[in-house]
Amino acid sequence: MIFKNYYFIPILLFLLSYAVLYLKKNNPYNSFIFLIYFTFFIQSIIVIAGLAKYHFTMVIPTYLMIFFNSWILMLIVILFELLYKAKYIVIYATPIVIAALLISYFAPSVDIKTILKVDSWLLIAHIVLILIGDSLFALAFILSLIYILQERKLKLKKNLKIINSGNKKSSGKNEGRLFNFRKNFNYFNLGNGYNLELLDNMNYQCLKLGFPALTVGIAIGIYLSSALFKSALSVRPIEIISLFTWLIYAILLHERVAKGLRGNKAAMLSIAGFVMIILTVGFSFYLFPEFHGLK
C-alpha cells in the first residue's frame, strides 16, 4: 500500500466528526471533539511514521510536508481550544486542516533532492519554524474571519442570538432537522468565549507567537539560501514576496503594540497577511521548485 493512502484515514475521520456534529441530537459537540482528538492521534502516528521513513531529516516530498503542516495546524488549533476554552475554533479551523490533507493527497507531489549538504538542524529549524508561523497565521486568518462576521452582526444588529437554544436537550419536535442547517449549527454561535474581545486576543496571540517564528524561520532560510547559492544578496521573486508577507505582519504587530490597533482593521491585515502566505507557499513550491531543491 502506498504510504499516501493512509492520509485518507484522517480525512474520513474528520469528515465523520462533522457528520456527527450535524446529525447527533444530544451533546453533539462532545462526540465531535472526541472524534477530533482521536483523529489527531491517528494523524500524529502517520506523521511520525512518515518522518521516520526519511530519518527525520525533513528532506521530504511535498505531500508529506503539507501533511506535516496540517498536523502542526491541528496541534495549534487544539492547544488554543484547550487554553482559551473556545470550542468553536475547532469547528471552524478543522476545514482548513481537511483542505490541507486533501491537497497533500491529490496535489501533484514533487520529490526533493538534496542539492547541497546543509546543516540538518538548521534545515529542520527553518522548516518547523516557518510551518509553525504559517499555521498560527492560518488560525489568525480563521479567527479574523469569525471576528469580521461577528462584528458585522453586532454592528448591523442582525441575527443576534441571545438565548442559548442548542445546548439543552431539545424537548420539542425535531422534524426537518436534517436540512435545517441554521438550527443544527446554531449552538456554536453561542457558549463561552464567543466574543469579540477573546477573538481579538487570540488573534493577537497568534501574531505574537507567529511573527518571531516566521522571522527566525526566514532568517535561517536566507542563511541556508546563501549557503546554497553562495550569495546572500541575490534577489529572487520568492524572497521579495516573503519579505512583503513579513512586512505586513511587522506593520500589524507594530500598530498593535504602539497604537493599540485592534478589532476590524487588525483582522483585515491578518487576512491580507495570510493571503500573502498562501501566495508565497504556492510560488515557492510550484513556480520556483528549484529554490527549495525540488525536482
Partner: peptide
C-alpha cells in the same frame, strides 16, 4: 439582553 450583548463584545 443588554448583559448578553455585552458578553458578545467582552470576554
Amino acid at each position: 439582553a443588554a448583559v448578553e450583548l455585552a458578553k458578545k463584545i467582552f470576554n
